[in-house]
Design a protein around this nucleic acid. Structure first.
Lengths: 134, 134
DNA sequence: CAGAATCCGTAACGATACTG
DNA sequence: CAGTATCGTTACGGATTCTG
């Protein structure tokens, strides 16, 4: 049992901070792909699908900055750069997979809830416009 | 062992979708606070700290739409509205806590990696400007 | 090949004022 | 009390062009 009634702002902030690192548009996908093994830049660019060159660069820089991936440059011609998960990155991948499992498990329930909610809102709207017209 | 080399786009998309629901600026904090029990609007507004009225409203609507919280209106004067986690919301809270635990556990390592990275970048910059001046 | 730099549109967010 | 409506700003992300 954790004392959840004790509010520790630092922890909340920490969690939020980490979540916004991982919650951006591409970080998770990149981490998951790198979970398959080290990859080169354009290799990632192809497999992540939909990511722009710019965003892949920024995402990788961010992950590198936080110590989640390493960037290794082989000074050949043409240049060759490999990205690889660090141990920290691997441990993150594990907990992200848990969240992923939850997402897949509850996908249908969420989608249906969404459908219901949108339907209800639509119904309310049409009732509204009917009373407007009257 | 999961066959991680088999790429299932639907699952990736699902995970990304869920993560962007939870990865926004306030959802997690709201869910965590609601994990302590049902709360009223302004009660949340105070405990979540930093959230604007507008964003709290939007966040709660989003969570309600996805079936993660319920919204109960007591038609008294003044009005009283209670928000409460659904079962689905509770199950999400559990996996989010796992991510939170990871965040807290690895906070220092991340911060230090960040510091190192920024230092290295700064050093490179100053070397750059020195060769510019020459 | 692996990026850096620039430009630009959208969407997220915050502050404020108003309402039932 | 619990919102809605409107406005302005900022941050995110995409497309394009250029470079070592």
């Amino acid at each position: 049992m954790s004392p959840s009634h004790i509010h520790v702002p630092t922890n909340c902030h920490t969690v939020t901070e980490i979540l916004s690192r991982v919650g951006d548009k591409w970080s998770v996908q990149v981490v998951v792909r790198l979970g398959e093994g080290p990859k080169r830049f354009n290799e990632l660019r192809r497999t992540v699908e939909g990511v722009s060159q710019r965003m892949l660069t920024l995402t990788l820089r961010g992950l590198e900055r936080d110590g989640l991936v390493t960037r290794t440059v082989y000074p050949t011609i043409p240049p060759r750069v490999e990205y690889q998960l660090t141990e920290l990155g691997c441990s993150l991948l594990k907990t992200v997979r848990a969240l992923g499992a939850w997402a897949i498990e509850n996908r249908d329930e969420i989608l249906e809830a969404r459908r219901r909610f949108d339907n209800a809102a639509e119904t309310a709207d049409s009732l509204q416009s009917r009373s407007d017209a009257a």
